[in-house]
Design a protein around this nucleic acid. Sequence first.
DNA 1: CGTCCTTCTTGAACACGTTCAAAAACCGGA
DNA 2: TCCGGTTTTTGAACGTGTTCAAGAAGGACG
Lengths: 222, 222
Amino acid sequence: MQRVAKSEETRSLIVTTAMRLFGENGYDRTTMRAIAAEAGVSVGNAYYYFSSKEQLIQGFYDEMAQQHLATARPLLDGETGFAARLKAVLLCWLDVAGPYHRFGTQFFVNAADPESPLSPFSDDSSAAREASIGLMREVVEGSDVKLDPELRAQLPELLWLYQMGVVLFWVHDRSAGTKRSRMLVERSVPLLARLVALSRLRLFRPVSREIVGLIADLTKRD
Amino acid sequence: MQRVAKSEETRSLIVTTAMRLFGENGYDRTTMRAIAAEAGVSVGNAYYYFSSKEQLIQGFYDEMAQQHLATARPLLDGETGFAARLKAVLLCWLDVAGPYHRFGTQFFVNAADPESPLSPFSDDSSAAREASIGLMREVVEGSDVKLDPELRAQLPELLWLYQMGVVLFWVHDRSAGTKRSRMLVERSVPLLARLVALSRLRLFRPVSREIVGLIADLTKRD
DNA sequence: CGTCCTTCTTGAACACGTTCAAAAACCGGA
DNA sequence: TCCGGTTTTTGAACGTGTTCAAGAAGGACG
């Protein structure tokens, strides 16, 4: 349908314009009126396609997540080391997100609201979340790491949580080129890998089991 | 001065009214106009004492932190177990914060903004942050736990970070009476204590040292 | 072409947080 | 009591995100 194409075009025009202005002036200083004017539509029209200013960002977020997946997956080919795989995925995320650090910050602030559909824990984000966890599952399953099967089953979700921690650090990172976040990844990943390896020791079994059980109980529905 | 007393009274009246309305209707649904009207002052007057709606909450935050300190400290008397001390402090925080969970949520969302003076990592919050870390120092130093002196020096800060994690979980906790957060504390504290104890093993030294070094580098100025 | 229905678009209007010039209240000293 | 300066208070006004009733545009069918 010609009609559908036209509609999609307008939608895309709005989101593209918004992202450009966000990048130029930051999220707060970019008004809906400015976005509409720059895109050559009325402000009401923007609200026809996007239910809020926040929502305008969700599309962008999805796009970024998808780009991360597409960029990260090839890096996993031919690499079997657990630490190397995990590090590659996380550094890749930093690369992909880098250009948007300025207003990405604002974005993740909104996402911190548990009520917001943009929250990484919300139902609305479950698709993107599952995709990210899926990537972590690839990281684990494609590697030669050996560990307790129960822990193995939960590890992808734990790694996703770890990634959320890295993101949180990155949001607060004010170092040039966010190189501090890179350092965090470079050095914490080997640590994590060593801990995971240690978990195979008998000494560790109870601790490991308790962690798995705790996570299971915490994420249980009601 | 009578004058000062009057001024302080007005200020206090405004913040008290605001907290009551926040509690009754939530942060978002409470307007500055409503606060001013309910307090019997003009909206401009509220802004004379508080530079923003967010700022209105900072006073409340300080009050809550202080209450936590005052309530938690007595619990440490006569208790020398590391896990028991830590658990007491954290459960106490949940008790103190409990009544404000509804709008506390909104509060901590604002606090997630790295630019916001309300962020727990901001300079403006350093006093409150230092106080909280100080409490964690008491937890460590008053306990009979034995560990690497370097780790011991950093442990309070690490525990504070751990507490921030608990807070983050609590913010997202939708279980009745936030009992899930209680479970998290009850079960993760012993785990943490066991890990800390394990860190004394020779096997662990390199890991422990690397963690200490990483934190030191990450928190270094520039 | 004309008629109906859906999709899309508009811009005025609303409620909110915030600002600011002006006024009021207050206080110490002549 | 009155004057000058400081502190406190006021409420109209501004810019913002968002809503909504109204209309325009487009297509399907006679």
